[in-house]
Amino acid sequence: MTPAPTTPAAVETRPPEADAALPAWRSGIAVVMPCYRVVRHILPLLARIGPEVDRIYCVDDACPDGSGDHIAAGATDPRVQLLCHPVNQGVGGAVMTGYARAVQDGARVIVKLDGDGQMDPGMLGVLVAPILSGEADYTKGNRFWDLRRIGDMPLLRRLGNLGLGFMAKASTGYWDVYDPTNGYTALHADVAARLPFELVAKRYFFESDLLFRLNIERAVVIDVPMDARYGDETSHLSLPRAVGEFSLGHARNLLKRIIYNYFLRDLTLASIELVLGISLLAFGAGFGGWHWWHSAQAGVATPVGTIMIATVAVVSGLQLLLAFLGHDIAAMPRRPLHKVLAHRAATRRG
């Protein structure tokens, strides 16, 4: 297995000699649980995690309510390991710390489960099944699958997901997945070990940023239907700040993904379609707009030939961009990366 990338230092409150008492790996399934102001929910949630899970990594992200102390005092499950950040890293930073520790300890599949009780531990088996069967590298919940249950989601969250959905598809390259901010996820540990944990966004954008980095690795991602569950938990997400952060993040990742996949890693017909499409569209719009403005100032009609040149350029540019989009959709990863890695490792050993 590839060594795990480095993450910000975390202090483990469990004494080192207790490692010998940890349950042995059986299923290889580990749960990573970021903990920030979840004192009311965390212990009942830990009690609901089934025996199919071998290890539970609770990451106290410098919680001001003392979530870590609460877990240390009240959790009796021997599977629980407590990791504490001395400084708040954000939910993404907490998850990356848990990922790194799970990979280091030898996990096979890592499930991210929030500590606020929104996610049902009972569907964990459904979430990891496509990974264990070799169909996917990464699975995530989709709360929009059952149209009858969408009404259970608060209106503001529905609107936010609808607005960010297309941007996430474009920036991550996973055109067949939705609900990009859903945090109920599972990841094959061999794929996790290849991720640059230190570069993944630390705050609420981290789910979308993780999808972008999985696409760069050519990992297979699929949606798993799940119901929306909302109780008395408190959201710490600021909507105005999130809109700006997510929009800039998606734009940056879209540009990176196109450069990586179509100009650095490979050069295909789609690369040419993209360059020609943007060039023709820009030329047509600029040429046509300039002549229209010039004619309007002079009070004369724009020549038909000038109109046709601009129109043909714009239409041709749009057609080429649509052709590129079709190629991008068809180029989504289809072969699970963890199988490729396993085959490569077996070949090297042989």
Score class of each variant (00 low, 15 high):
Glu198Thr: 07
Thr234Ala: 12
Gln297Lys: 12
Val109Cys: 08
Cys58Asp: 00
Leu269Ser: 10
Leu322Pro: 01
Val91Gln: 02
Ile307Asn: 08
Val220Glu: 06
Leu318Tyr: 11
Met123Val: 15
Gln81Tyr: 04
Asn142Val: 06
Ile29Asp: 00
His41Lys: 14
Ala313Arg: 00
Ile259Val: 15
Ile71Val: 15
Leu237Met: 14
Asp152Glu: 14
Val275Ile: 15
Val224Cys: 12
Ala331Glu: 11
Ser247Asn: 10
Ala298His: 05
Trp175Tyr: 15
Trp145Arg: 13
Glu245Met: 13
Thr347Lys: 14
Ala298Ile: 10
Glu207Pro: 07
His343Phe: 07
Asn261Arg: 07
Arg143Val: 13
Asn88Asp: 07
Gly299Val: 14
Tyr262Met: 05
Val177Ser: 04
Gly74Lys: 14
Gln118Pro: 06
Ile309Leu: 14
Val111Ile: 03
Ala75Asn: 01
Ile110Phe: 09
Leu255Gln: 08
Pro23Gly: 02
Ala20Tyr: 05
Val87Met: 08
Gly288Val: 05
Leu159Thr: 09
Ala301Gln: 07
Leu164His: 09
Val95His: 04
Thr181Pro: 04
Ser295Gly: 04
Glu17Cys: 07
Ser247Trp: 05
Leu187His: 03
Tyr262Pro: 03
Cys58Ile: 00
Cys63Asn: 13
Ala242Asp: 10
Cys35Pro: 09
Leu280Pro: 04
Arg257His: 00
Asp328Glu: 15
Val314Tyr: 03
Val87Arg: 14
Thr6Lys: 13
Arg48Tyr: 05
Arg101Ile: 02
Asp190Ile: 02
Met308Asn: 06
Tyr204Leu: 12
Arg203Tyr: 08
Ala186His: 08
Leu147Val: 15
Ala285Arg: 07
Val200Ala: 01
Leu276Asn: 01
His70Val: 07
Gly350Glu: 15
Leu281Lys: 02
Ala102Arg: 03
Met1Gln: 08
Tyr260Asn: 08
Lys169Trp: 05
Ile309Glu: 03
Ala310Pro: 06
Gly93Glu: 00
Ala310Gly: 00
Val95Phe: 10
His343Asn: 14
Val53Ser: 04
Arg252Glu: 10
Ala20Phe: 04
Arg344Lys: 10
Ala331Ser: 15
His327Pro: 01
Ala296Leu: 12
Ala192Ile: 02
Ile329Asp: 02
Leu248Pro: 01
Gly115Leu: 01
